[in-house]
Write a protein that binds this DNA or RNA. Structure first.
Lengths: 342, 342
DNA sequence: GAAAGGTATTGAAGCGTATCAACGATATGC
DNA sequence: GCATATCGTTGATACGCTTCAATACCTTTC
């Protein structure tokens, strides 16, 4: 049963190689009876087309690649789901890979996707800096979660608005002193902090302080930071903690509770990136996030836009007029128990 | 910048085609200076190897395929993570696809993986019935979540034990009357019910009844079933609901609460498949699950076992002595607020 | 200094398919 | 009945690469 080639199929069906190939790619060109013969030959032989050979010979790949930073964030799952359903709707497959927070691996998968002549690639880069790569690439690329004033397709996330929403929420529930914890490394975090500062600027009566130490982003960092905060004398102690990620926030809740504080009565705590996988049972977490599903969906739409609908169709002529295609996905606030008293 | 072939690289570096190829696949065969020349030629030209051509010419694919039933179950994410890290540890990549609960699509991805000569495929089939496929396939396959007395590699999940654990839990907290809700379609559900019946048999004093109607598996089904249960006169009303999935359980909690029952005080409710994505904030859900991470990890180990460690190494001689390679992943109980009173 | 043994490089063959110009068969028009 | 158009089929070619036998170059040895 091994190694059935289209040659074998052709022989079995008593037709030429080209005809057998046509049965696969242009069935409308064959007489019904011939098609029938070839197809039954294929199934009796258990023929499976060799993808590599098809692509090499000039066939089009009907799959998109999705390259995510990692697999342990709920947002990525949503993105994958959105991308998947949209891809399917247009007759494309979707292959997902994770860079596992490793730039080396990210590059390697990207090259792999290029090398397999994917119909297009959706990528959420690990760093802003990774964006300009696309100039070199011969297949359509769409970047996720990235503002970028460059020619190219971007599904941008308004991280700044995310920070703003959370900070506004803190202000609106009457907080007097807000601590922002987390590491400000990634571009995302940086923008979120900027959004928080926007709110700070317009609310001078509220104190904001920033504990943006290089953290690994693990829950235990949040735990420790919350404990440090809890040790402050009550007059200096913040009544609201904004954690730059939900994982951190979850740790912070545990840390605060461990130190004897009640959440949200003594101190309110919010996350900032809508990661269902980080939520645990102690206190439902207030957070803020874009809809990942929509991100994936829009991303694939951009890809389809570039190469044309349907797996086999022509590639669209390149759209030159406005070389900057961006969609901005708006975040929404999810206000829950960890900040809402009563 | 388009279409740089290894020919171009060879010309640029002033070496032959074969040497350029060796720089990629057997760098140890080249003189250091030659290797240097070729590599710099590659980077100045922006060369990216054509995966299809490599495979077609006999190269080995250093990636595994993971084919999941869908992307909206937390367990699948864990599986993906486990598989990914183990694959990486052995120098393999991992490409993930989702069958989206569609058998047609499952077949199609499977053929795609075959056609693209993946080093191996990890698949969690939609139905038990999908198992025997492997006889026809020329590359290593490992099945997930499947008992099967056939030659082949299986990472089995003890769904029966899952049912047993939950049912034992119900008995152990003193329940008198247990309702089991859900649809008994998939093999998983069937086994879970069997486990529940095991417990029923050894605890004649506890009433079990089964409401196994064809449900779509959506939360709203759980909602409605719980409402129906809540309408029963208090003497006949069960004090424990086992939902065959966490999604259903979450719906059931909402339904019970909507009908004025307190969870867990008036009625305890448990899920059965450990799906973090289904958990919401109302009441932390008691559930039961295998560790997906371990499943993915073991699955990839089985693959590696068949083809040999390292991307480039020889394929191991087929192990014939015991043609049935199974690992049984044990589930664990997660007892939380939705069943634990006080 | 010639033979023997290594080591580094070459170039041709072939992987399985899609494509396409050429061809044969069948139908159409006069 | 012949030329012409239409449809179905054929088979050679090329895709970019890996592999491998053959070759060229460089050391070592007696």
């Amino acid at each position: 049963m091994e190694k059935v080639t289209i040659q074998d199929v052709a022989r079995e069906a008593g037709v030429s190689l080209g005809t057998a190939s046509n049965a696969l790619n242009h069935p409308e060109k064959l007489k019904a009876s011939t098609l029938q013969k070839v197809q039954s030959a294929m199934s009796t032989l258990g023929y499976m087309p060799n993808q590599s050979a098809r692509l090499l010979a000039g066939g089009r790949n009907a799959s998109f690649g999705l390259l995510l930073p990692s697999l342990d964030h709920g947002l990525f799952l949503q993105i994958a789901n959105g991308a998947h359903s949209e891809a399917r709707r247009h007759g494309f497959g979707l292959l997902i890979a994770s860079a596992d927070d490793d730039e080396q691996l990210q590059r390697s998968y990207l090259r792999y996707f290029m090398g397999t002549q994917m119909a297009g690639v959706l990528i959420q880069p690990l760093r802003i800096h990774d964006a300009p790569l696309d100039a070199d690439f011969p297949i359509p690329i769409v970047y996720l979660d990235l503002h970028c004033r460059q020619p190219g397709y971007f599904v941008a996330v308004d991280n700044r608005a995310q920070g703003r929403l959370i900070a506004e929420h803190a202000v609106s529930i009457g907080s007097r002193r807000v601590s922002v914890i987390g590491s400000c490394e990634g571009p995302q975090a940086e923008h979120r902090v900027r959004g928080i500062r926007d709110v700070e600027a317009t609310n001078p009566s509220v104190d904001f302080d920033y504990l943006l130490e290089g953290s690994t982003g693990l829950a235990r960092d949040g735990f420790m930071m919350a404990q440090r905060i809890a040790e402050l004398p009550e007059t200096e102690r913040p009544d609201f903690i904004i954690a730059l990620s939900d994982v951190l926030a979850t740790g912070a809740i545990a840390g605060a509770q461990d130190a004897g504080l009640r959440v949200p009565d003594d101190i309110a705590i919010a996350g900032c990136d809508g990661n269902p996988l980080a939520w645990n049972d102690s206190v439902p977490l207030t957070t803020c996030a874009p809809t990942g599903y929509e991100m994936g969906r829009r991303g694939v739409q951009f890809l389809v836009e570039q190469i044309g609908d349907g797996a086999g169709r022509e590639r669209n002529p390149p759209v030159e007029e406005d070389p900057c295609h961006q969609t901005l996905i708006r975040p929404f606030l999810l206000a829950r128990r960890s900040t809402v008293r009563g």
